[in-house]
Design a protein around this nucleic acid. Structure first.
Length: 206
DNA sequence: GAATAGATTGTCT
DNA sequence: GACAATCTATTCT
């Protein structure tokens, strides 16, 4: 896998300049990579969710809301939208669509990819554990994603990128997680995950 | 494996 | 002041 990563280039901007639903589906199987002074940590994307403001009431950009926090969602596709919730956990999104279209894809779970050392140290557990990066907050902790990566360009030479991954199994879909407040929008099947993958966060009940 | 409760703080109204 | 695109420990089956 390490060789695969070295040979892989970041996904081009054109990849992100499409419907969030399409990008969410196609991100499954790709590999998220973060290089820092401490080393490299990465994971294969196995679960995503699409957020499509201003109509989508589950999105931070619902009803055209635009604040310092969600500014990145209004910007260029292919950049990172990182936010903190519950004051402690970080979550990572890839901005999608065209300029002025505040859409993004939340990465909800990763399958560990070697080298594991840095992720294991950051999470204080072995890569054998299902909990290493099977949730939005957990994967950000494992990869060291935080305030410093806000708005970073995923398509350039940044420390944070997404590269072509390994073949994937069937991609299944379900309703998004923890967005009950969005009413009818919460029922949309905008969560995508690799069928049968043990690293998916919440067990699908489809 | 599944369900439940409590933690905890930045962000926006 | 209310709430949040969550996590962890705990308590069950």
């Amino acid at each position: 896998m390490a060789e695969v990563l070295r040979a892989s280039k970041p996904l081009p901007r054109a990849f992100y300049e499409r419907s969030a639903l399409l990008v969410a589906r196609e991100l499954v199987g790709k590999v998220l990579v973060h290089r820092t002074a401490f080393g490299v940590a990465c994971g294969r994307i196995v679960e995503t969710e699409a957020y499509r403001g201003p109509k989508d009431l589950a999105a931070h950009t619902a009803n055209g809301r635009r604040t310092p926090r969600n500014e990145a969602m209004w910007g260029e596709a292919g950049r990172a939208y990182v936010f903190q919730l519950y004051g402690v956990h970080w979550a990572f999104n890839a901005v999608t669509g065209f300029l002025g279209e505040p859409h993004a894809v939340l990465v909800r779970a990763l399958e560990p990819v070697a080298p594991f050392e840095l992720s294991e140290a950051r999470r204080g557990m072995s890569a054998e554990r299902r909990e290493l990066m099977n949730g939005p907050g957990k994967l950000c902790a494992a990869l060291g994603i935080g305030a410093e990566t806000y708005g970073v360009d995923l398509c350039g030479t940044s420390a944070l990128t997404i590269v072509e991954g390994l073949p994937r199994a069937r991609v299944a879909r379900s309703a998004r997680i923890n967005v009950a407040y969005a009413g009818e929008w919460a029922k949309r099947l905008w969560r995508y995950y690799e069928a049968g993958n043990r690293w998916v966060s919440v067990k699908p009940r489809d």
